[in-house]
Design a protein around this nucleic acid. Structure first.
Lengths: 132, 132
DNA sequence: TAGCATATAAGAATAATTATCACTTGATAA
DNA sequence: TTATCAAGTGATAATTATTCTTATATGCTA
């Protein structure tokens, strides 16, 4: 029986708290926002633990990074294939599901014949209904 | 003769250095990378000056932010309508020009009828020829 | 050339994140 | 149960990225 090399992620109280917060679906949070929420449930918890765990969860494929322009990395609990709309005024982020996305390279200006594309992310920028 | 409210950006030696570096077309640099290069030409220059000027140039519409995943904001001197490919291995960024991009919303999952979309940015992730 | 708004260097300050380390704990084996 | 040990943790220092402060300097325009 071969022992897999995967890290055994232990189920600790701190992680339970993080799972709980993440499951409450307040998506697109920064590590610090998560930390602020988490310490309410678990006051001893340190920021390092949150940062550490968030990255581990990304490595484990349970979360993904969300790279909006701001200073802090955000985490996305939604692993479905989806894209994002960002309101330039209030900063709100909305998930965008597409049935189809297609694009045609401009062959005179771009040559991607020797690259392998694994994924694509579309970011739509604009103004949301409330701010509009 | 009405005086426009636009800031009169003075042409200082420091800005000359920045323009020079930016014109050398090493695109997608972080403010710190620009600072490191700039101080070679102008050793007295301070980081604050670089950060300040980069933001002013963005406000003036001469540069744009580029939000890749990393910790630092990058600046893009290419103001043409274009998109980006990011190599997951070496981090290299390539400009991608599209003749056409179109996407179809999944109407059951996404409703963008009340938002105004001003721009869209497509990020392609994968592995470049050299790393592949 | 004076006057002033803008710009600057230097360094302190802040925010976000990561590293270090001594101690603790969950999972598994005994 | 208990022992074992890799994995996890909190506290804190350190780092990185960026912004602020302030006293001084300098382009531009009248």
């Amino acid at each position: 029986m071969e022992k897999s090399k995967e890290k055994g992620l232990k189920l600790t109280p701190q992680r339970m708290v993080l799972f709980h917060i993440l499951s409450e679906d307040d998506r697109h949070m920064t590590a610090d926002e998560i930390y602020q929420k988490a310490r309410a449930e678990h006051p001893m918890l340190s920021p390092a633990t949150v940062y550490r765990n968030m990255e581990q969860l990304v490595e484990a494929g349970l979360l993904s990074h969300l790279d909006l322009g701001g200073p802090s990395t955000r985490y996305d609990t939604n692993l479905d294939d989806h894209h994002h709309f960002v309101c330039e005024k209030c900063g709100k982020v909305m998930d965008v599901y597409l049935k189809d996305i297609r694009y045609e390279l401009d062959p005179e200006k771009s040559d991607l014949s020797d690259v392998r594309i694994d994924s694509s992310q579309l970011y739509l920028h604009g103004v949301c209904g409330e701010c509009g």
